[in-house]
Design a protein around this nucleic acid. Structure first.
Lengths: 224, 224
DNA sequence: GTCTATAAGGAGATAGAC
DNA sequence: GTCTATCTCCTTATAGAC
């Protein structure tokens, strides 16, 4: 990848002779195939065929197959963090903010299934440099959640003995639907997101003494 | 795969001119490489080189590359279910049995890291027939846990609104360490297993009204 | 049980025409 | 921006000697 390309990838709305919209289309096609067959299970010829062009034409838009993979992964690991971290800093009780984070997280999985599947399985196909870059985003998210749970425990809203571990446990749980949720299943993604939010509150001790989890969304604008 | 080979793979201690011990060695080598580089990222030549033989010699022990993958996955999906399901039927309170299940599950991840990594990522590389076979084990585990949580709720030990979903949430959480735990980390696998067991109890409402989770292992031989 | 040699095809990537 | 043609290397798997 050239420096110019790297800079373009960082920007929110890249410009230039190689249209950003076309790139995004091609990334979406590649993500779908990577999801279906795995990064190493799909060739540039197959991606090109699915996009209805020749393999050589892909190299006009992307320097390498790895760049296609990286763009897929950015949809999750870069963009999720940018969307979600502000939630933890926003208004509301700790419980409300945690619930919003979980709903946003699960909803993001539902809205970006191909990219999530790829980001969950194909990180190791990245070069060490790009892998590092991606993992910085993940660690930032994880640490922010750990700090938030510690603060919520200090404020008496949660009861986390070990906030770092609780953050891992919550993330393990809310990443789980990436492995099994599908649109045709029993629960719509919004329902699942709401229920996982209630379960996450239990997990961090945010529902202590309230055995009936259906009540979770009635309590509002208290504490803080 | 021939029928004889399939039958041998099913048996606990396969015999024959192609030694089971040699097969297990080669599967372990293959699992490690599949973990490091992905199923499609590793060639038969690389597996052979790591085992210090020629690629053609692998075909004396295994009919195909896929058979090596399948044997890796069996270590998790077939053997785990066989080890773990009896725990749910054994003696003890529901809480005790759930805690034992979680500790066994997390411990199995720690003891079979390569196989777990592969089973978590490379299922789609199996043929549809073998994929089905593996997924039957997974569903059995999931359904057994769901039934167990429903029974524990009816018995008053848990408080699961939706036992099927709670089973998924618990499994999502306790599968999580497959993604991040490593021996050199902050927690030994036994410590992690014990803490995740306590967190799983919270998740299913098995700790209602007990905000201090450190107490979990003191209560014993009550209810049932 | 392991070897050498090879078949038959797919991989990522590039050159240069249009 | 897309094409055709091609380079070089690697892929799974098999044949048959030892």
């Amino acid at each position: 990848m050239t420096q110019a390309q790297a800079a373009r990838a960082q920007a929110g709305r890249p410009r230039g002779p190689r249209s950003a919209a076309r790139r995004a289309e091609l990334v979406a096609v590649a993500s779908r195939l990577f999801r279906e067959r795995g990064y190493h299970g799909v060739g540039m010829r197959a991606i090109a065929e699915a996009a209805d062009i020749q393999a050589a034409s892909l190299y006009h838009h992307f320097a390498s197959k790895e760049e296609l993979l990286l763009e897929s992964i950015y949809v999750v690991d870069r963009d999720l963090v940018a969307d979600q971290l502000p939630i933890l800093e926003a208004e509301g009780t700790y419980r409300e903010r945690l619930a919003r984070l979980v709903r946003g997280h699960v909803g993001h999985i539902g809205a970006n299934r191909d990219a999530w599947w790829v980001a969950g399985r194909e990180l190791r196909a990245l070069s060490p440099e790009k892998l590092d870059e991606v993992q910085v985003y993940r660690r930032r998210y994880q640490h922010a959640l750990g700090d938030f749970l510690a603060a919520g425990t200090a404020a008496g809203e949660f009861a986390c003995e070990d906030a770092r571990l609780s953050a891992l446990a919550v993330l393990d749980m809310i990443n789980g639907p990436n492995e099994w949720w599908e649109p045709a299943g029993r629960l719509a993604i919004d329902e699942l997101a709401a229920r996982y939010a209630a379960l996450a509150l239990r997990l961090v001790g945010g529902e202590a003494g309230v055995p009936a989890p259906a009540q979770a969304r009635k309590r509002r604008s208290s504490a803080r």
